[in-house]
Design a binder for these strands. Structure first.
Length: 304
DNA sequence: AAGCCGTGGAG
DNA sequence: TCTCCAAGGCT
């Protein structure tokens, strides 16, 4: 849950998840719908699918016993170098550095390491520098201490290095270049996408479609979505395809993903389709929902 | 290697 | 508004 997600965001999800699925066996056997419901709103949904795969791997390949070495942990789905090292050091005392964004930031500033952390090959540079200095007695505490430092005194945007216990070891602080580190090149180019969300009502039920098994928001149910090349094309396209199309929203519902910006117009139509599945509100509410779909439903209620 | 994968918060 | 980032991993 903590992959690319802040602790404060994770806590309520974590509590709920553990209350519902307290053991590895429970997780391994759960329905995907239950998993996604518990994860709804947290994002990066492949994480929960991978976590279930990992639970199934533990049951099948490790006799239900949680692996205890970073090497074995990395064979599990969704567990890469960081997560394996974090679990191994914190839970089992293995002496390995847990290289996360905080660790990169803290050490790149302390030592003025110019390596571009966006490039995978830079990881080895940090590993080789940090591995020898991990506390051999309390490796988990070492890793957590560095991560805590990285979220507090040495945070990304507003570090307070003067009061940091590491100030006198901090090369970038001493020449005022701390905000130049870490060096990170990757820039996400955001694509604009334009949609009409179709509101097709039949006997008090609304039409939905299930998204593809792979890719963005995989397997979630949403209103039928028609994609267009531009915002103008949405108006023209919808009225051309549907006789009495009625635009329900004055301004589009906007939703931003990591590298896509969606603008969605709600359109009520008279037509039905056999390709769509019609759910009552009560039934639909039992399904896992994405934040985008929640926004669309709020907009629908406000404009009906 | 570089692109993909959610969402919320901060500045 | 816009940009960047957050206890990354997979393909």
């Amino acid at each position: 849950m903590l992959q690319q997600t802040q602790v404060e965001t994770v806590i309520p999800y974590y509590e709920r998840f553990l209350a519902e699925l307290p053991t590895i066996a429970d997780l391994a056997a759960a329905d995907e719908e239950v998993l996604l419901k518990l994860w709804s709103g947290l994002g990066y949904y492949s994480r929960v699918r991978n976590m279930q795969k990992a639970a199934q791997q533990i049951m099948a390949d490790f006799g239900g016993q949680f692996p205890t070495t970073s090497q074995a942990l990395q064979t599990l789905a969704g567990i890469g170098p960081y997560t394996a090292a974090a679990i191994a050091s914190i839970s089992f005392g293995e002496v390995v550095p847990a290289l996360d964004g905080n660790m990169f930031r803290v050490f790149s500033r302390l030592l003025k390491i110019e390596a571009d952390i966006a490039q995978p090959k830079s990881r080895k540079i940090f590993y080789d520098l940090i591995a020898p200095i991990v506390d051999p007695v309390r490796p988990g505490d070492f890793n957590q201490a560095i991560m805590d430092l990285g979220t507090s005194l040495m945070n990304a945007k507003t570090p307070t290095l003067a009061t940091s216990p590491f100030a006198r070891f901090n090369l970038s602080f001493q020449d005022g270049t701390e905000l130049d580190f870490p060096v990170k090149s990757k820039k996400v180019k955001q694509r604009q996408k334009f949609y009409a969300a179709l509101i097709s009502e039949k006997n008090g039920h609304l039409a939905y479609e299930q998204r593809s098994k792979t890719g963005l928001l995989a397997n979630f149910w949403t209103f039928p979505l028609l994609e267009f090349d531009s915002w103008d094309a949405v108006y023209d396209g919808v009225s051309a395809q549907f006789a009495n199309a009625k635009q329900l929203t004055i301004t589009p519902v906007t939703h931003i993903f990591t590298h896509q910006k969606w603008q969605v117009m709600l359109v009520q139509i008279d037509e039905f389709s056999e390709n769509w599945t019609y759910f009552s509100e009560k039934d639909y509410d039992t399904l896992p929902q994405t934040t985008l779909q929640l926004k669309l439903q709020v907009a629908l209620r406000e404009n009906l």
